[in-house]
Amino acid sequence: MALLEVRDLRVAFNTPDGVVEAVRGLSFDVERGTTLAIVGESGSGKSVATQTITGLTRGARISGSARFDDTELIGASTKVLQKIRGNRIGMIFQDPLSSLHPYYKVGWQIVEMIRAHDHRISTAAARQRAAHLLSLVGIPRAESRIDDYPHQFSGGMRQRVMIAMAMALDPDLLIADEPTTALDVTVQAQVLEVMRNLQEQYGTAIILITHDLGVVAEMSDEVVVMYAGAVMEKGARRTIFYDHHHPYTEGLLASLPAQGDIGARLTPIAGAPPSLISLPAGCPFAPRCRYAFDLCWKETPPLAEVYDDPTHLSSCWLSSNREMRHLDREHADETDAQAQAAEPEEWSA
């Protein structure tokens, strides 16, 4: 059994403009000791989904299920959730400065967190553990830096402190929500390295939420691609990068600047993501999809197996046969080339 099983999760918020359906039927599993990457652009619902699982969304309309090791998290009491959060599910967020309390010493914050979950541990022992954790994530002179305040640490160091805190109680699952987005690339490389080492050492499962496909390629075992609150495609890392089925995944990868193709025009996805208020029927990606046909506008495609691979799911009406899908692609390339020759570029939507 998987460590975390999310089934048909739906999250909606009431706003003055109408109901925002942030997550619309999300299902995925996280296996022990593996990394699941959730990729998507802003507004795809990737953060809301994981925040809902850990009970951090307020005032939302939630349905569906999220079973964590036999405990149902959706609708669980605060008491149950508090026991699991920190203890069994650790979390790190994008902005390490606002995740740490500026008034308290870093060590104190870790000690407090350890003691909140383990009432029997002495302050001294907890402090020792905190120092050990800080050295584990690569903070030099951890014993003395434990008495520093958050502002005395750099951005990368703060994110290490956050990881130390999230790992303090040896959780089974670490949810990392854009953990390196605010960091420079060389510092990002350091932080990813720390996460990789900890996973190897402790067998922690990781949900990595990111918009950076480069980070996904480096870190993940499995990938979930989200768009407009729903899963577009799901599969093993190499499958998603080299053998994807869904036009959105294809478009995302194609829009990245390729190596050795300097100065050439890129292939963007036309248009912009839809508003999540009163989404029309059909596939949410249809308005931007170069393959869209009648059915796409009428009915939402189910998340179904493609290319005869039970671990590879795609939510798309295009043929699940690899050869047929390839023909579709060739056909679309031809029509696009003709259209481009015939008329100048349209205004952006």
């Binding site: 690339v185 490389a189 390629a217 990245l256």
Partner: peptide, 20 residues
């Protein structure tokens, strides 16, 4: 250059990474 995550699993797995 080596810290830049590349969206290509094969390259990501094989290349040398220099962590400063």
């Amino acid at each position: 250059l080596s810290a830049l995550p590349l969206p290509d699993p094969d390259v990501a797995d094989s290349r040398e990474r220099i962590v400063l």
